[in-house]
Simulated assay, not measured.
Amino acid sequence: MAFEKFDDIYRRAAERKGGEDKLEALLSTPLSKEQVADIPNDRWLSAFSMKVFQSGISWSVVRNKWPNFEEVFFGFQIEPLLLLSDEQWDTKASDKRIIRHHAKVKSIQANAQMIHEASLKHGSFGNMVANWPSEEITELWAYLKKFGSRLGGNTGPYSLRQLGVDTFILSGDVEAYLRSCKVIEGGKDTKRSLQAANQAFAQWQAESGRSLTQISQTIAFSSGDNRVLAPIE
Rank of each mutant, 00 (worst) to 15 (best):
M1V: 12
E4Q: 07
D7I: 02
I9L: 14
A14T: 04
E15I: 02
E20A: 14
L23S: 11
A25E: 15
E34K: 11
E34A: 11
A37H: 02
D38W: 00
I39P: 02
W44P: 09
L45R: 02
S46M: 09
F48G: 06
M50Q: 15
M50T: 04
V52E: 00
V52H: 00
G56D: 13
I57M: 14
W66C: 06
F69Y: 13
E70Q: 13
E70N: 07
E70T: 06
V72S: 05
F74D: 15
G75H: 06
G75K: 10
G75E: 05
F76I: 00
Q77K: 12
L81N: 05
L82T: 00
L83A: 12
D86E: 14
E87L: 13
D90L: 08
K92D: 00
A93V: 07
A93M: 07
A93D: 10
S94T: 14
K96W: 11
I99L: 15
H101F: 11
K106E: 13
S107I: 05
I108D: 04
M114K: 04
L120V: 14
M128S: 08
E139C: 02
L140S: 02
Y143A: 12
L144M: 15
K145W: 04
K146N: 11
K146W: 03
G148M: 10
L151M: 15
L151S: 00
G152I: 03
G156P: 02
S159E: 01
Q162C: 03
F168T: 01
I169V: 15
L170F: 06
L170I: 09
V183A: 09
I184S: 06
I184A: 06
K188N: 15
K188R: 15
K191F: 05
S193E: 08
A196R: 01
N198T: 08
A202N: 12
W204D: 13
W204F: 10
Q205N: 05
Q205E: 12
A206Y: 06
I219M: 12
R227H: 13
L229V: 09
I232P: 00
I232V: 15
E233K: 05
E233D: 11
E233Y: 03
